[in-house]
Nucleic acid binder design. Structure first.
Lengths: 328, 328
DNA sequence: TTGAAAGCGCTAACAG
DNA sequence: CTGTTAGCGCTTTCAA
């Protein structure tokens, strides 16, 4: 309004300039920009959202923990969203809250977002809501939701399989698995990959020990594993648990990797600096976030939006010092 | 509007009910609530923000990394904000961006927030902006900003001092320090604490090695330290660097803690499970976030808001296996 | 205790 | 290329 007067144009023209719309003469554009700068003018997001129906922000549902995987995914989503011109709203799901994800998505929709990303999906039975914006669920088997939901599968199963095969190729007769909580889809993926590798090689499948992603739970699992002299190789569903397993093994006098090999999952930044350096699987959170967001933006903006990047996100086994052939 | 018609009341009355305002009869309240529920009605945040001038959300400027400290602080802020009824907007500062914090704060203000929290302040010279909302700067010496900024100092210096003293009391003649980047206030705090401990005990102050918070930089520092046979004790400004230091020491054939003691800072969840378990300093991010947010809310809502919790946030030295007396 | 009227600051749709 | 006219869905102010 003030800017319009000062630049001697209509309010709508100011709007056009500030939104980079076409059909504004260069001269007028300059004049408006100058006036806006002088007045320290800022577009009011609330008014824009009210008038346009779009908020320019997307919401993320994430875990309220410092675990590497979820946190890195959040950071990657932030970057991808910002690059696409969207602001981010974040809601943590609280541990133990029964319908945490549903509630979190709802709160985001109420806050006003153009789309929602569910970063670490947990099986809560059915998602009992009909959000009126697109929802992207990361790391989920497709076709689990009706639109407007969109899913991006993730490649953890395949990666888990190659981690297990690495151990098998080293000469281990079988591989034990310390899984994540059963309700986490991410845990299921890894479990499936491990199982597939064992089956493909005709190896016996030892009972699964379930952890909660934490190093403490890894250590508890490791204690049970250490008591069984038949255990020579362990695949943990994330690096934190792998660290706990190694700790328990070492405490029990079973050196890693001399007696028992351990591989983790995620490649936390510390992995290369541990004693021993941790063999693990690295996945590109950035790639997954970027691909997922591209899908989400299509659902929001329509088919004119940039098409999602093609190609598999890189997943790679990083062999370091925590794996070796089994003792003779 | 629809809800109003359905409940047979005015729009304003609906507004009153939905905002828990007084002066609504219980009977009408019920009727409105029922109508809203049947219609699946949701308050529109944008409209409310436009009309009331308040957005009900606060913005956080944080680092785009998976480092434990910043991430945990972010999670704590999310919790504290949600408990206070505020939604969260998040912007990461990009590494290397010269005026990263200023730009991030501006973008938050443009997005529309009632207040801003700067979680990991870096010295960027002067903050060259006059945001029109209160800004809370965590971990900063007070009185660095004019209002509407408010700062919460943090107790890292004192904690760093006790970490250093722990080493001195173990019998080490002096303590070497691997610092964080000089521009980070958090790094400065720890440096000061270390220095104070040395001075108080009349010990020589060895040259500081500066890292970048990462394990890789810690390892580089550790290599230099390992080359000096006089080094028997190291205090690293965070746990990630401490892990790198230990790695380098071990690689150089200087076992920890037999030959060299190392203490970290932050108490990452993995600290207790490392080889050796890491002696470190634990600080309560939750307490700092909660106190800081209380200050911020006062600045936003006026002096009627809940007063900030009193008392020092707990900071404690956790002694584990990476420290021991110097070799004889 | 309730309601009516008047915007908040922007964009959509349509004219010029 | 530019302007006019209506709202978007709330809250505010004032009156009943």
């Amino acid at each position: 309004m003030d800017v319009a007067r000062r630049a001697g144009v209509s309010q709508k023209t100011v709007s056009r300039v500030l939104n980079d719309e076409p059909y504004v003469s260069a001269e007028v554009r300059q004049r408006v920009l100058a006036a806006a700068a002088e007045l320290g003018y800022r577009l009011n997001t609330a008014a824009r959202a009210l008038a346009s129906g779009r908020t320019g922000s997307i919401g993320v549902v994430t875990l309220g923990t410092a675990l590497y995987g979820p946190v890195t995914m959040l950071m990657s989503i932030e970057r991808a969203a910002r690059d696409a011109g969207y602001a981010l709203r974040v809601v943590n799901t609280v541990e133990g809250d029964p319908d945490g994800i549903t509630a979190a998505v709802n709160s985001l929709v109420e806050q006003g977002v153009d789309g929602v990303v569910v970063s670490e999906p947990i099986d809560e039975g059915a998602f009992s809501f009909r959000p009126d914006v697109p929802v992207l669920v990361l790391g989920m088997p497709a076709a689990f939701f009706a639109p407007p939901a969109v899913t991006v599968p993730g490649h953890a199963a395949q990666a888990a399989r190659s981690a297990t095969e690495h151990l098998l190729e080293l000469g281990h007769l079988t591989v034990h698995h310390v899984a994540g909580p059963a309700r986490w889809y991410a845990a299921g993926d890894r479990l499936r990959g491990w199982r597939a590798a064992l089956a493909a090689h005709g190896r016996p499948e030892p009972p699964v020990i379930e952890g909660d992603w934490s190093a403490a739970s890894g250590r508890a699992a490791g204690r049970r594993l250490a008591a069984d002299p038949g255990v020579t190789a362990v695949f943990a569903a994330n690096d934190e648990m792998a660290v706990g397993v190694i700790r328990a093994l070492v405490e029990a006098g079973r050196p890693v990797p001399a007696e028992v090999s351990v591989v983790g999952f995620d490649d936390i930044p510390l992995a290369a600096y541990l004693n021993p350096p941790l063999t693990t699987v690295r996945q590109s959170f950035d790639a997954v976030a970027r691909e997922g967001l591209a899908h989400l933006l299509r659902a929001i903006e329509g088919p004119d939006a940039a098409p999602p990047p093609a190609g598999d996100p890189p997943v790679e086994l990083v062999v370091r010092g925590s794996t070796a052939p089994p003792p003779a």
